[in-house]
Nucleic acid binder design. Structure first.
Length: 121
DNA sequence: ACAATGACATAAG
DNA sequence: GCTTATGCCATTG
C-alpha cells in the first residue's frame, strides 16, 4: 500500500457524517489537485475491513461513480441516505449543501505533519 | 523504463 | 443531458 493511498484514507476518514467530498477535492487536499483518478483507485483498492467512509466520496457531479458490481452504487447511496444525504430526483447530490468543506489549511498542515510519522492505521 | 489501466475532471460535440 | 476526447497521476504487469 502506497503512502498516497494511506493519505487518501486518512483524509476520507475526516469527512464527517452527512457530508460528501469529491475525488478531486481530496486529491487537492493531498497536494495533488490532478490526482483525482488516483484517489478513485485508492477507493477501489480499499481493504474490506477498513474504517474508511468511502461512500462519502463522490465525483464532481454529485453522483455515484462506482462502476464495480462488487461495490454497488445502490449500496453507497443507501449508506449516504442513512447519514442524511439528500439525493435529487435524478440521483444527484446537492453539493452546495452536502459538500464537505470543514478541512481548512491549518488542518491540512496538521495532516502533512503526520504524513511521514505514521501511515499505517 | 514503457504501456496499459482506472470509483476522476473538464471541455467540446 | 449524454457521449467523446484529452489531460492527470499513481499503480501494476
Amino acid at each position: 500500500m502506497s503512502k498516497f493511498f494511506q493519505r487518501v484514507y486518512r483524509v476520507v476518514r475526516l469527512i464527517p457524517p452527512g457530508k460528501v467530498a469529491t475525488y478531486g477535492q481530496i486529491a487537492a487536499l493531498l497536494g495533488h489537485p490532478r490526482a483525482a483518478r488516483t484517489v478513485g483507485w485508492a477507493m477501489h483498492a480499499l481493504p474490506e475491513g477498513s474504517d474508511v467512509p468511502w461512500h462519502r466520496v463522490i465525483n464532481a457531479q454529485g453522483r455515484i461513480s462506482t462502476s464495480c458490481w462488487e461495490h454497488a452504487s445502490d449500496l453507497q447511496r443507501r449508506l449516504l441516505e442513512a447519514e442524511g444525504i439528500v439525493f435529487g430526483p435524478d440521483g444527484r447530490i446537492d453539493l452546495t449543501v452536502h459538500r464537505w468543506e470543514g478541512l481548512t489549511w491549518p488542518e491540512i498542515d496538521a495532516l502533512r505533519q503526520g504524513k511521514d510519522k505514521d501511515v499505517a492505521d
